[in-house]
Amino acid sequence: MKSNVKELERTVVCKKSEMQPGDRKVVQVRRISILVVRKEDEFYAVRNACPHQGAEFEKGVLRGAARATSEIKEVYYEKPGGFIYCPWHHWSFDVETGCSMHDPENTKIKTFEVKVEADEVVVYA
């Protein structure tokens, strides 16, 4: 009996020590371009294409989300290093959840499981 469940492919990205916080690497799994980012000691993986017009996130900025405070001209950054920004139109997505900063319920990008196994960063897609 054939199962409809697709088996995830295991892809080694690099050694853990080869990526520092804020670094990113792109891997191809089947025909999917996946962006792997390191935030502090955690690794996250998202589809490397903005849903708006397909720009590659690898060319965008990885930073926190700017939020205003009650003081005029004062801004703080929520989740430093936790949002990837589209290089074309600056749409931003949380690398942990894939949710858009501005429309989290309706606009998302695909996320993938990332594990550190014997000092190797591995993506399952």
Rank of each mutant, 00 (worst) to 15 (best):
V27I: 15
V27W: 14
Q28I: 00
I34S: 07
L35Q: 09
L35I: 09
L35C: 14
L35R: 02
R38A: 11
K39D: 00
E42I: 00
E42S: 12
F43I: 07
F43C: 06
Y44G: 00
Y44D: 03
N48P: 11
P51K: 10
H52R: 09
H52K: 11
Q53P: 00
G54K: 13
A55W: 13
K59T: 05
V61P: 04
L62S: 04
L62C: 08
G64T: 12
G64R: 14
A66C: 08
R67C: 09
A68E: 15
A68V: 06
A68Q: 14
T69L: 13
T69C: 02
S70L: 15
E71K: 07
K73W: 11
K73R: 05
E74T: 12
Y77L: 15
K79I: 11
P80A: 01
G81W: 03
G82S: 05
G82F: 00
F83T: 05
I84E: 08
P87Y: 00
H89T: 12
H89F: 04
W91P: 04
W91L: 11
S92K: 14
D94S: 05
D94T: 02
V95N: 09
V95D: 12
T97P: 11
T97Q: 13
G98N: 15
C99M: 06
M101L: 15
H102T: 09
H102G: 08
P104E: 13
E105F: 04
N106Y: 10
T107S: 10
T107A: 08
T107E: 15
T111I: 07
E113T: 03
E113R: 08
V114E: 06
V114C: 05
